[in-house]
Amino acid sequence: MSALYILIPVAVGLVGFAIWVFLWSVNNGQYDDLDSPAHSILFDDEDPQHKAGVAEADDKDEPRG
């Protein structure tokens, strides 16, 4: 029973710390843009316009011959 007097305040303190860390991360913009980092791996670092492959796709649309 005496262990509860220690474990309950420790658990409440851990929950309070977790909530504080979550609110800190939200306020500092950690969750603002979740999609761009996932898509950035698909683009060349050397192509600032991110239009890699556009010329090749345009050439395929034109009839050959």
Results as ranks from 00 to 15, higher is better:
residue 3 A to W: 11
residue 43 F to H: 14
residue 26 V to Y: 05
residue 9 P to M: 08
residue 41 I to T: 03
residue 63 P to T: 08
residue 33 D to A: 02
residue 65 G to C: 06
residue 1 M to K: 05
residue 28 N to K: 15
residue 53 G to A: 02
residue 38 A to K: 11
residue 62 E to P: 00
residue 51 K to D: 05
residue 45 D to S: 11
residue 19 I to L: 15
residue 47 D to L: 06
residue 21 V to F: 06
residue 20 W to D: 12
residue 26 V to T: 10
residue 17 F to D: 05
residue 10 V to N: 01
residue 48 P to T: 14
residue 63 P to Y: 14
residue 45 D to W: 14
residue 19 I to R: 12
residue 17 F to N: 05
residue 61 D to K: 14
residue 62 E to I: 07
residue 47 D to I: 03
residue 2 S to P: 00
residue 57 A to K: 01
residue 56 E to A: 10
residue 28 N to F: 00
residue 27 N to F: 03
residue 4 L to E: 04
residue 3 A to L: 15
residue 54 V to S: 08
residue 10 V to P: 01
residue 13 G to W: 10
residue 62 E to C: 13
residue 12 V to K: 15
residue 50 H to Y: 02
residue 34 L to P: 02
residue 12 V to D: 04
residue 38 A to M: 14
residue 3 A to S: 10
residue 45 D to K: 10
residue 34 L to E: 04
residue 6 I to C: 00
residue 53 G to V: 06
residue 25 S to R: 09
residue 43 F to Q: 01
residue 24 W to L: 07
residue 32 D to F: 01
residue 53 G to H: 09
residue 46 E to N: 04
residue 56 E to D: 09
residue 47 D to K: 15
residue 65 G to H: 07
residue 13 G to M: 07
residue 37 P to Y: 01
residue 63 P to I: 12
residue 51 K to P: 00
residue 56 E to W: 02
residue 58 D to T: 02
residue 24 W to M: 02
residue 13 G to Y: 04
residue 41 I to V: 07
residue 13 G to I: 04
residue 24 W to T: 12
residue 55 A to M: 01
residue 2 S to K: 10
residue 1 M to T: 03
residue 59 D to S: 04
residue 60 K to A: 10
residue 1 M to F: 11
residue 13 G to D: 09
residue 6 I to E: 09
residue 40 S to L: 03
residue 5 Y to A: 07
residue 61 D to A: 11
residue 50 H to S: 03
residue 46 E to K: 11
residue 29 G to M: 05
residue 46 E to T: 13
residue 62 E to D: 13
residue 32 D to T: 08
residue 4 L to Q: 13
residue 31 Y to G: 00
residue 28 N to H: 06
residue 12 V to Y: 07
residue 40 S to W: 01
residue 59 D to K: 14
residue 12 V to W: 01
residue 7 L to E: 06
residue 1 M to Q: 06
residue 12 V to R: 03
residue 15 V to Y: 11
residue 2 S to I: 11
residue 63 P to W: 09
residue 50 H to A: 04
residue 50 H to C: 02
residue 55 A to Q: 13
residue 56 E to Y: 01
residue 56 E to L: 04
